[in-house]
Each structure stands twice: as C-alpha cells, then as structure tokens.
Amino acid sequence: MRNNYQSRKALSRGDLLLGLVGIYLIYLLYASGFFTAEAWADFNRRFYQNFVKDRRYMMLVDGLKATIFMTSGATLIGLIVGLILSVIRVAHKGGAKIPVLNWLAESYITVLRGTPAMVQLLIWNFTIFASARDLNTQYIAILAFGLNSGAYIAEIFRGGIEAIDPGQMEAARSLGLSYGTSMKRVVLPQALRNIIPMLFNEFIALLKETSVAGYIGIDDLTRAGQNIQALTLEHSQPLVMVAIIYLVIVMLLTKFVSKLEQWLSRGRRR
C-alpha cells in the first residue's frame, strides 16, 4: 500500500517536472519565432537538406548499422572474455589452486575498468594496430570495446554467482555432486536469473559507448551525424536526430529488459 502510494507520488512529481520543462521549451521556441510560417518553412527546408536530399538519411542508416554491428560484436567478445575471467575468479575463490591466473584476471579487470574505453580504443588503433593499416577499423573497435566490456561482464557474472547463498553449493556437494556439476545444475541456473538482465544493460551501455568510434575514423551513427553536418554546415538538426535515434533504441531495449526481469522473477514463483 505504502510503496504504491510513494511510487505514485514520485511519478506525478516527475510528470510535473517534465511538463514544466516542456512548457519552457515551447516558450523558447515561441520566443525565437519558431511558430511563424517563415520559421516553419525554414525548418522544413533544412530538414530536407539534412536528411532527404541525395538520400542523406542513408548515412544515418549506415551509421546505425555500424553502431549495431560494433555493439553486437563487442558484446560477443565481452561475453567470452567475461566468462573466462569470471570462471577463473570464482574457481579461485572456490579453492582451485590458480593464484597466477587469478592475479592475471584481477589485473585485467582492474586495468580495463580503470581506464576510459576511449583511451583504450585509441591505444588499440594508434599503437597496437598502428602498422596494420589495411585492417578494417571496425574490427579494431569491436576488439577494443569487447575486451573492455569483458572486464565489466566478468564482474556481472561473478556478482551474480556470489549472490547465490553458499548453502546451495554445500547442499549440492553434500549429495556427492562434483564442484562443476553443482555449479552447472544448482548455482548457475539460479545466478542466470540475475545475470541475464544485467547483460542486456551492459549491451545498452555499450551501444552508447561506441559513439566514440568516430575518433578512429569509423562512420558510426554519431559520426554520420557529424558527416551530415560537414556537408550541410547545419549545426543542430543532424545531431539532435542522432540523439533521438539513440534514445529510441535505448528506451525500447530498457522496456524489453524490465519485461524480461518481470518474466524471470515470475518464473521463480511458479
């Protein structure tokens, strides 16, 4: 009851704020003469210049393709790296004698999480692969973002596994199941319920993070907006459009994750 009341109140306060901001923006537009016929015609003309003429919208479409390609590839690498790292760390904690491997995994996670993804991207491109000029830079970006994401995904896996009551592992072991089987049949199925939504959140974060790929010359969605800018010398519309595209995708994915979370937790109470 009480929670319900609080959340409703919080929601209405948020609505109010949004409404005020909206009214203020409309006022700004009005004050700048936006609602005059000339301004409207100008807006439409610029919109045509930016997105329609010479099929310039295709630049955004191709940019979006590059963004999604990089994000997906990086997530895939991140999953593999994260899985390996978390297996090392969890097994080490579970008593496996792998101090060197564990130290390497820990160092990897510390360094890759402790430095900006963009700096890592630049290092991969301009230092490590500096002489490999015929390599598609998108693959370098996938590698850089994937290895970076792997450090975060490793912590997602580890956190999800460690959140499971140690009594679960004990009970499975007490029945004579091996460590691996206990992990596979008892701990992981429970941990995955927490892990899966967090992986989608990581995908969402990565989608936005790849917007710096333009720094190594990849025409991703963000860079496509800038490219249109360069052609039309138009300062606002292309980037606002880029922002809207990101926002719509992120909102759709967020909606999907919250639905997924509901579905997973409903499964628990079957």
């Binding site: 009594g167 009970a171 007490s174 628990r268």
Partner: peptide, 28 residues
C-alpha cells in the same frame, strides 16, 4: 564425492534448491 553419496547431510537452513521442484530436489 563418492564418500559423500553415503553420508547424507541436513542443514540448519534447509538449502533446498529453489529453482527445482520437490521431485527434482530429490532426484537431481
């Protein structure tokens, strides 16, 4: 692991597997 098959253990906090039915808890 072989030894533990022949030594059952009952815990203070039960430690049933919540993602499995009672049947699967017993037959896993």
């Amino acid at each position: 692991n072989k030894v533990r098959r022949k030594m059952g253990m009952v815990f203070q906090h039960f430690n049933l597997f919540p993602h499995l039915t009672v049947r699967k808890n017993l037959t896993l």
